[in-house]
Design a protein around this nucleic acid. Structure first.
Lengths: 338, 338
DNA sequence: GCTCATATTGTGTACGTTCACAATCTCCTC
DNA sequence: GAGGAGATTGTGAACGTACACAATATGAGC
């Protein structure tokens, strides 16, 4: 029965401390011109009452909320998750909260709905971790002028973007295999409308072309280990197969299994490279050579870029690209001599 | 220079539609007694102005925000992530948002800080996905009376809890191995202060005891594949080893690698069972027998429980336990005959 | 001690919404 | 067509805070 006895407001604190509510407000917002003794009195009252500021009231009057909106995909993709933690931590360091909307499908209307919902919350800025081209398209058609930064989005839309240089990563992976003496490198790509898929294919193709080799047709995967396994079974039938670059570690795992089942040894017969450097991939059999991405760093950086926009009060199109590193493990070795 | 021309309010809509602001409010909140024609007029005005309600103002006056707070760990643990998506989706179906706080360390003070921050936001309820005993302790000592549901927490604290029956899962995993004729089952456990670690050890031990076997000393892991690998190297030296139950799939992966390196075949020489049923574990070499947990379902259910509390206006201690399923794959087989 | 600049504190108002209640309209019944 | 019940609409508050400005206190300089 006992209904909540309304939590204390700035006025209650003021009354207890014998000052005006405005003075309390000043203490809360760290205004300089408050006598030290007054400040102490107020702080004591705050503690005694267990007062905590009402962010709704604050948002209402200032017009800005200390909340950042994040739009993401609800498929459990590592990239997004890791970036999200980076975002959350950095935002909290700035005293901001993170409100998440997880999309099931990426299309213009669901994207629009997500943006509207966040706008309704009067978020101070938005981060979009939806690495599909459709997402970027949908965003450019949005009139909203809230500060906005993409994470792993497509550059060149006039929208700020923080990302890992996927193309560079793929090129390094491919070059590593070529340097080991492999004649060519097969590729298993990810879902077709993802940025990463496109960029990694490009990097792989460019590395091959630079070495004067013709790129074979890439095999279509969908990021899952299962699709890697299917691709692996296909690849295992190709006699001249000596090297594969998979667009992520999960698919590489499936490939490893498929090759093992066909009696092909890694790396003696076939070399395999992945992408992501999952924690687990160091313990695949054999441990996987892969490309490391610092997603958490990308997330943190994106938040900083967003705060830049928030402070200046307008969007910009800053671009941030971080270099991925190749991590060499036991799944790659010299090409077998035919 | 052109500063944002303040977004339209309920008053602007009222003026345009030639009604009072209160009528607009009624349309927004689906009150029954509004003439259809009036409703249409108002909705037209809303569309024309691109009006969206100000949730801060709404929260201020009603005292409740349409936001759910989630406290989680920022280590990328699958359990938490999957549960989170379940939470987010279900919350959004109810028209609620999810605000996340990711903890770096779990102790009383960081827990308290997280709760305070969410309280400051006036969240309608909180979900805690921090499966460590320390978290539960910290929560019981909190005076706050906000609706609260734990996900994978420890029951019996008088706090509502939604979880997978870890003990049952571990028992099923162990029984499966015993039924295959293994004399005993070794265990690699997770981090020591996690609920799951404790419950899975208990389930494993009980299954062994029920079969009249003595439980060997469990090996200490930390959930990572790396720790599983270390444990696996240790286990590989034990001559009577024929079966291992790892407390999660990642550690099982490490064990598989360690065993393979020592020339032990799975399942011919040693059977291995994991826990979690990661997407990838079906493609380990060999595909892993493991325990499947429906985290997304747990998350959804937790949200429902939370809304129950929110509607009733007080906490309760409802407990929800979901049964995990054993998924048998190729990493387990009959005990080798000595 | 007086003057004035500056430091400190206080007062009025607005933010956009919902709630409680008051006012008006509509239409049925007799 | 009067009465009244119910439907529909409107009015006056209040939520808790920050901003603009007004008022007062303090202390330095003479």
């Amino acid at each position: 029965m006992s209904s909540q006895p309304r939590s204390p407001s700035i006025n209650d604190v003021a009354a207890l401390a014998n000052v005006s509510y405005q003075t309390v407000s000043r203490v809360l917002n760290d205004h300089p011109n408050v006598r030290a003794s007054t400040r102490l009195k107020v702080q004591a009252a705050i503690t005694q009452l267990g007062y905590s500021p009402n962010s709704a009231a604050r948002t209402l009057v200032t017009g800005r909320s200390r909340v950042l909106g994040v739009i993401t995909l609800d498929v459990a993709n590592v990239d997004g998750l890791a970036a999200m933690y980076g975002v959350e931590r950095r935002a909290r360091e700035h005293g901001y909260f993170v409100s998440t909307v997880a999309l099931e499908h990426v299309d213009r209307s669901s994207m629009r709905a997500a943006v509207d919902q966040l706008a309704e919350q009067r978020v101070a800025g938005m981060l979009v971790i939806v690495p599909s081209e459709a997402a970027d398209d949908a965003l450019t058609s949005l009139p909203s002028s809230v500060p906005l930064v993409l994470i792993e989005g497509r550059p060149g839309h006039g929208i700020a973007n923080a990302a890992v240089d996927q193309e560079l990563g793929a090129r390094r992976a491919t070059e590593h295999l070529l340097e080991l003496g492999h004649e060519t490198v097969f590729h298993v790509r990810g879902l077709s409308d993802w940025m990463q898929t496109h960029d990694r294919v490009t990097g792989w193709r460019k590395a091959l072309e630079a070495a004067g080799r013709e790129a074979p047709l890439p095999l279509a995967g969908d990021w899952t280990a299962g699709s890697g396994y299917s691709a692996g079974r296909m690849l295992a039938r190709i006699p001249e197969l000596t090297a594969v670059f998979a667009s992520n570690d999960d698919m590489a795992l499936g490939i490893l299994l498929a090759l093992a089942e066909r009696g092909l040894r890694v790396p003696e017969d076939v070399s395999v490279v992945g992408f992501d450097n999952l924690d687990a991939s160091a313990y695949y059999n054999p441990p996987l050579t892969t490309v490391q991405q610092e997603f958490t760093a990308v997330g943190s950086r994106a938040v900083e870029m967003l705060f830049g926009q928030i402070e200046r009060g307008e969007r910009d199109d800053e671009q941030f690209l971080i270099e991925p590193q190749l991590v060499v493990r036991k799944s790659t070795g010299p090409a077998r001599t035919a």
